[in-house]
């Protein structure tokens, strides 16, 4: 082979080797641990903080046991505490951090209970114009134990 071509190919080889070398340093150690991805990222994502504690967390004797037992036998038992009261994990782990107050406006209850044509017909719905004279729903209905005025 001609010397100038030899030089050109040597140069090329050096570049390629340098690339392989840099690559071996730059690729994260956990890459390929489980598949073609960075294995550490699985735990990074698992470590994301939990925000919603779940209703069970409210039932402690020292906390909202009474309200919990009323609610858990009511027709609203399928509605999780945090669905109305908002995420409360921070409050559960530290009671000094108060969760935001529950939204008790008519429109909030209406998210489920205003009459809407797309809702399953058997689901309890009211016409917000004719029902309840614009009073807050909780004026008549206990949200923790509905159907008892």
């Amino acid at each position: 082979m001609q010397p100038h071509l030899k030089k050109a190919f040597t140069l090329l080889a050096i570049i390629i080797i340098a690339f392989i070398f840099v690559r071996s340093i730059a690729v994260p150690d956990s890459f390929g641990e489980y598949g073609w991805y960075r294995g550490d990222s699985v735990n990074e994502l698992r470590n994301q903080p939990v925000e919603h504690a779940g209703s069970q967390a409210c039932s402690d004797v020292d906390c909202h046991k009474t309200l919990y037992s009323i609610w858990s036998e009511s027709r609203h038992k399928t509605v999780n505490c945090e669905t109305c009261h908002g995420p409360a994990e921070k409050h559960v782990s530290n009671v000094r951090i108060m969760p935001e107050p529950a939204n008790d406006s008519r429109d909030f209850c209406g998210l489920c209970h205003y009459k809407r044509v797309a809702r399953p017909g058997e689901f309890p719905q009211i016409d917000p114009v004719t029902h309840g004279e614009n009073l807050r729903c909780a004026y008549c209905h206990n949200p923790h134990k509905p159907w008892f005025v």
């Binding site: 698992r46 939990v50 925000e51 919603h52 779940g54 609203h76 399928t78 669905t83 689901f123």
Partner: peptide, 19 residues
């Protein structure tokens, strides 16, 4: 994923009032 790997339900499933 941070919830289901701890035995909790996904937030959307937990929040759904009608199952």
């Amino acid at each position: 994923y941070h919830r289901i790997t701890k035995g909790l339900l996904p937030a959307c499933v937990q929040a759904c009032p009608v199952g």
